[in-house]
Design a protein around this nucleic acid. Structure first.
Lengths: 143, 143
DNA sequence: TTGCAATTGAGATTAAATTATAATTAGGAG
DNA sequence: CTCCTAATTATAATTTAATCTCAATTGCAA
């Protein structure tokens, strides 16, 4: 069974890059929880021991190697999530409490594919984000 | 027939704000062409006579009043388009030449609506962006 | 073990977007 | 039409995520 570690290691080797302790720690931390995260949260979770510069640089590599993906920007921050071992899905984002709801709708995927074919467009990635109010916040909207 | 001018004027009045020459000029410029635009392009189109600060502030008002919308960020810049008089549509973005292709797929819209209902999520806006290579750039990929 | 290119952290830098401020102005009241 | 005042403007300063610089350090292949 191929692990995220294996995949990243292989990617690094293929590019002549090193699997440093910092990169290992970042990768391990990201794959140790399931929520979405931004750079600041990751910096805190890592005990502020690894510089932001290194985190930014490592995230770029993780995106390159298809282990994680940017999902959206919220309040000027980029959010990421790991995609290794997770099938593609889309997101609903509550603009009040920040909650993220994931969903998968195969029919939408298929329709997107059809649209691309119709326009001879070679899709590399696609992202659907629905912003609004989650059930909880919609209820408490008046308060 | 209600024009964009009318709608913006009404919005401003309802908020006790003024319809200044700068705001008129920005609105007129935006609705005088059909492509997507970012702040810099707008600043240039306006002959650099209106400060960026004013442009940013006016764009916020135009978004508030539902005359324009942010569509995506590309190379650290936010792109906008006018939506008044245009039915909702989604976008394909060529990551090589920057071309934008608009498309509308009612079935996708309906499926999104169904997903929101299933999660009791009150949608305010949604955005689907497909990034990849346009027909032209896909052909010339090797060169 | 050695050598060197890759990597790191700290701090400087960049650039989009926002904000503070003082002068100016739109537009309603009279 | 004139007056008055809160809103608006431009300029310049500020904020802040992200990137870059560089000297010191280190992974790793030979």
């Amino acid at each position: 069974m191929v692990t995220a570690d294996d995949k990243f290691g292989e990617y690094l080797k293929s590019k002549g890059l090193k699997f440093t302790p910092e990169r290992r720690a970042i990768l391990k931390e990201i794959f140790s929880f399931h929520e979405h995260f931004n750079v600041d949260q990751l910096y805190e979770r890592l005990g502020r021991r690894i510089s932001r510069a290194t985190i930014y640089r490592t995230l770029s590599l993780l995106i390159e190697s298809k282990l994680i993906e940017e999902i959206f920007r919220c309040q000027d921050r980029t959010s990421y999530e790991h995609i290794f071992g997770h099938p593609h899905h889309d997101h609903m984002l509550c603009i009040k409490c920040g909650k993220v709801i994931e969903f998968r709708e195969d029919k939408i995927e298929k329709l997107q594919k059809a649209v691309c074919e119709r326009h001879n467009f070679k899709s590399v990635e696609h992202r659907l984000v629905i912003k609004g109010y989650c059930e909880e916040c919609a209820k408490n909207k008046g308060t």
